[in-house]
Design a protein around this nucleic acid. Structure first.
Length: 667
DNA sequence: GACTAACGTTTTTTT
DNA sequence: AACGTTAGTC
């Protein structure tokens, strides 16, 4: 048992957390208080207490968090023990539950998982079919309402709006008919199976006797219910989170899970980590003064271990152009004067649209930068298409992927034919694939389309056969199929730039490559598809390997830290955002700013503009009301002119002398 | 069934 | 301003 941690390296609260292994524990871990280290040590401690690693489960919200935790644990315990533990997301845990027991809910074991774009595609169809009511209902609106209901534990068929309820029923029926589930169903059905089937529940409870939940402030009501099913007496459960960093309320996260934890698990040990190792005294003081304006929190005060520090600057800017220039210049100056790396700098903003000018300013000065977040790999068209083909090889009866690539690349099976096939399949209670294979159906179609359908069916059937023969080499079969249909050429035709063309090509190659890697580990194509459906980012390459200053949204910055942070756009309407004011969630905006402030290790500069370009229009801006909530003790108010205005541009000089001349002339 | 032109939209983001 | 969506045309 070679676990390597010592109690001496922990502070008192951390030690307490690591020691408290039994019964419910809630670990309130403020920003920068060594949360991950504490959780990792706690798990290592379990091993020392001879708890079998296979009984240990750690659940996170994102894949990224899961792999990070896996890595941290692997660095502390034996390789064997690390491999025997389960560290995964809520969703992938539920896939495990469902792959074993979804037949209890009337689905087949080889169910497929709908991605967001699959859902949108399906809902679009339903909207067309159901027509009527409002003309301009967007698929996302309906799907959002359904998702919200599911995650609150409400049956979507009872939605208040009749039209929505109707669509929800049709949507669920359609999914069931296609033997498919969406992301929310994973949790919903997982919870249901555990709740209704004591044998399955007991199996999981005996398998996992020690459960840890990370980023607990991001969990929603449904995940809480799932946790309650998963954890039985004597309730060895540990949740870790910080209500002050709850910034995902808009997508269903329930701070109540933290605020009312006692309601779900009685008499928990509540341990607060408040000693901050990240930021200077000045930064923490400012952060604390802000968050104290929120009501109904689990009171926490971050205590600095680092003394002093530069004051936090609040800089008034004339406009967003100057703001971007100012930051670029500061980064340039900071790098050469203090000997910082580009990676030491980060610029945080509320909305993605705010990054444009910053990017321009950095590029002008040849400052390397990385944008994190942007577009998700698995939502890219070519990736989804190739995965759809892969899924057809496993189960051609899955309508969603079939319809997705039915005419991609164009093979003469257009929308009208697709609708006919879908209608036929519904009337005859069979899949679209079965309809396409059915001569009774194809006979009703014109000769041109019929021929197209026949060659498509033959194409997929051939590929399926090849997979039967080369079961352990799915990557080559898929690769062959993609090549055969000249998919790459087709997608390249639609590309506008060389860059885009290259990216698309890489996307396709990347799917094939990861499938190959997956198969080499002896895993099936089905498990590859599960993994892909639940993953959003590339696991391997973009692991922050890119160099440069960081441009990032406040949301995406949670969990990260940077020596020097610029927080831009502290303007009423942006931060807090107009919409959040309308929705009455200003508290969450305050937490968002709090998250931003606590990212800074050494220096923090916040700025606001008097005017900003918004949707191509120049608009006037007011400073954020949050600025007034910050304690003045460690603040320094300056303006663009104070710092850079010392050397005014020639334009401004001309203007100045022009005005002066005018004044003199007037005398 | 493919292409173009007008149109409307634009917070945050994960599974 | 810029992007995606949709409606209308060939």
């Amino acid at each position: 048992m070679a676990s390597s941690f010592s109690f001496d390296s922990l502070n008192q609260a951390q030690r307490q957390a690591v020691s408290a292994l039994d019964g419910p524990v809630m670990l309130l871990a403020g920003a920068g208080t060594g949360k991950t280290r504490t959780v990792t040590c706690r798990i290592a401690h379990m091993l020392e207490k001879r708890i079998s690693p296979s009984e240990i489960l750690a659940v996170t919200f994102t894949n990224k968090a899961a792999s990070e935790m896996r890595e941290r644990i692997a660095g502390m315990v034996s390789k064997k023990a690390a491999a025997e533990m389960t560290v995964c997301t809520f969703h992938s845990l539920c896939v495990r539950i469902l792959r074993g027991g979804i037949d209890k809910l009337g689905y087949k074991q080889n169910f497929s998982i709908c991605s967001h774009s699959d859902q949108v595609g399906l809902m679009k169809q339903l909207l067309v079919r159901k027509g009527g009511s409002d003309e301009k209902v967007k698929p996302d609106t309906v799907l959002g309402a359904i998702s919200k209901a599911k995650n609150k534990g409400i049956d979507p068929s009872t939605l208040e709006d009749d039209y929505f309820a109707n669509l929800a029923v049709a949507y669920q029926n359609e999914l069931r008919a296609q033997n498919a589930v969406d992301f929310d169903d994973l949790l919903l059905f997982g919870e249901k199976i555990l709740r209704e089937h004591a044998d399955v529940r007991e199996m999981f409870r005996q398998r996992f006797t020690r459960v840890t939940v990370d980023e607990f402030q991001d969990t929603n009501a449904l995940q809480m219910q799932l946790l309650q099913q998963l954890v039985g007496p004597p309730y060895h459960v540990c949740v870790v989170g910080d209500d002050d960093q709850s910034i995902y309320g808009w997508r269903g996260a329930e701070v109540a899970n933290i605020l009312e934890f006692e309601r779900f698990f009685a008499n928990p040990k509540i341990i607060r980590l408040e000693e901050n190792y990240r930021s200077t005294h000045a930064v923490l003081h400012t952060a604390n003064s802000l968050i104290q304006h929120n009501r109904g929190r689990r009171e926490k005060i971050l205590r600095p271990t680092r003394k002093g520090g530069d004051p936090v600057r609040i800089v008034a800017m004339p406009g967003d152009d100057e703001e971007a220039e100012f930051i670029a210049e500061e980064i340039l100056a900071g790098k050469s004067a203090v000997g910082r790396q580009w990676e030491d700098f980060a610029v945080l903003f509320r909305t993605n649209g705010q990054s444009r000018k910053l990017e321009l300013a950095l590029r002008e000065r040849k400052i390397p930068y990385r944008m994190v977040g942007a577009q998700s790999f698995y939502d890219r068209r070519e990736v989804r298409d190739v995965l759809a083909y892969a899924q057809l090889l496993v189960s051609p009866d899955a309508d969603v992927p079939l319809l997705r690539i039915l005419n991609a690349p164009n093979r003469g099976i257009g929308q009208s034919t697709a609708v006919l096939a879908t209608n036929w399949s519904r009337e005859h209670h069979e899949s679209v694939w079965q309809a396409l294979c059915d001569p009774h159906f194809t006979d009703t179609i014109g000769p041109k389309s019929r021929h197209a359908i026949e060659s498509f069916v033959a194409l997929i059937a051939r590929a399926k056969n090849r997979l039967e023969i080369a079961r352990d080499n799915p990557a080559e079969v898929l690769h062959g199929l993609i090549k055969e249909i000249e998919y790459l050429q087709w997608i390249e035709r639609g590309c506008k730039t060389e860059n885009e063309r290259q990216q698309r090509g890489e996307g396709i190659q990347s799917v094939i490559d990861s499938l190959r890697a997956h198969a080499l580990k002896g895993k099936t194509l089905q498990s590859f598809l599960d993994h892909s459906a639940l993953a959003s980012e590339r696991d391997d390459d973009d692991l922050e390997k890119k160099q440069g200053a960081t441009l990032i949204t406040l949301h995406a910055s949670k969990g990260l830290e940077f020596p020097i942070v610029f927080l831009v756009g502290l303007e009423e309407g942006y931060l807090p955002h107009t919409r959040s004011i309308a929705e009455g969630t200003k508290d969450e905006e305050r937490r968002l700013l709090y998250v931003g402030i606590t990212r800074a290790q050494d220096q923090l500069t916040m700025s606001y503009c008097s005017k900003r370009l918004k949707w191509g229009q120049e608009t006037a801006c007011q400073p954020s009301s949050f600025i007034g909530e910050l304690d003045e003790e460690h603040l320094e108010h300056t303006s663009y002119d104070d710092i850079l205005g010392a050397e005014p541009s020639t334009d401004e000089l001309d203007n100045f002398f022009g005005n002066l001349k005018g004044m003199l002339d007037g005398i």
